[in-house]
Design a protein around this nucleic acid. Structure first.
Lengths: 198, 198
DNA sequence: TGATTTTCTTATCTTAAGTTATCGTTTTGC
DNA sequence: GCAAAACGATAACTTAAGATAAGAAAATCA
């Protein structure tokens, strides 16, 4: 099963056998039940996980309201990257939307590998570059698109089987930076326009 | 003058003498006049610069409209990081808002240093982590705040001497994801509320 | 310096998002 | 299996942002 992590990592940079063997013993498994919190408010993150099965959402709590700001699905890394990098208490919650199976390792393990194998340092850089590009792409949808435009982009970029049918709509609304009511109206508008075109 | 770059880099990680001497000959200077473009549309970026004096803005062109999405000021790195990382043509323009003086180096120089000195690889990772954190902070202002809230945060986080007085207001509006007219109204509203409190 | 352009504010009108509430429907938990 | 909770659509109303235009002030520059 740990091979899945190796495969996911290899999408970024190939890991040689000796490099893998130094890592492998420090990988563990974990299950998280639906609605359980993987990352809690105020906790300093020390672990990085990969999702074998299931999905998570990340949310801020703003004036008592949960604001969903990210989703995590199968074969993705899930962690509070900011808390790990800065060693600051988490200002977000990461919570299972389904029963989940995870592989995980300690950040300190990765820090040790950084020092022992240059390859892992490169891996660390590539990961950071990658999450930066993702963050920028998401930021640009806010800078360059209206709420309706963001919803249309969201539809284009996400397989409806993969996400739409697995995630309650009001989480998606929050993710798009709008209210559930507003998303419902946008959906009605978009559907009406699609019908008029046909 | 090149020492300024070393100082800026040292805010991230200290650079030893031999590491610096391998780098120093590959650093050059450049001046850019107000309104000149440092990064052009469609060009693949190869250079990374540090601003000694002056400021830049970054903009997308969407349906003929310039959408200002970022500012760069003194002692900051300026480049099209995405274009450099992915080796894709630039979808943005970076243009001088004032007459500017720059230090710059080729990305390939940094790539070579990555291989020669582990320290530079670490530097590369830390830079990537850093720009990620900045991108997330900016993304969160969109996810968690209204336009007025974003403007208030913008005021808090930016010295008005540093930015506000140097940057035309309609660029700031664009940066906040709103129209110039809307920003003008928000300013009037905020000022009125401040007056009522007093 | 005088003309032109840029910048910002203000006003009007339109459009869309926020708020609140209601009502079926589905899901969940005992 | 049933009661409670969660979910999504919709409606009515409020609020704020977008579009457009006009005008004053400031910056630019020839």
């Amino acid at each position: 099963m740990k091979e899945i992590l190796r495969q996911v990592m290899s999408q970024t940079i190939p890991i040689a056998q000796d490099e893998w063997e130094a890592f492998e013993p420090h990988i563990f498994t974990k299950t998280v039940k639906k609605r359980e919190q993987l990352i809690r408010l105020g906790q300093i993150s020390t672990e990085i996980a990969v999702i074998i099965k299931g999905s998570f959402r990340q949310y801020h709590i703003i004036e008592g309201e949960e604001k969903t700001t990210f989703f995590f699905f199968d074969n993705q890394f899930v962690c509070n990257y900011e808390s790990i990098l800065l060693q600051t208490p988490s200002n977000i919650v990461i919570e299972a939307m389904e029963d989940c199976e995870l592989l995980y390792f300690k950040n300190e393990t990765m820090q040790r590998l950084y020092r022992l194998y240059p390859k892992y340092e490169v891996f660390g850089r590539l990961i950071a570059e990658n999450v930066y590009l993702c963050a920028m792409e998401r930021l640009n949808t806010f800078l360059l698109n209206s709420p309706e435009g963001r919803y249309r982009k969201f539809l284009e970029h996400h397989d409806s089987q993969q996400i739409l049918n697995r995630v309650p709509q009001h989480y998606i609304a929050s993710y798009l930076g709008i209210t559930p009511v507003s998303l419902s109206r946008i959906r009605a508008r978009v559907a009406r326009q699609a019908r008029e075109l046909a």
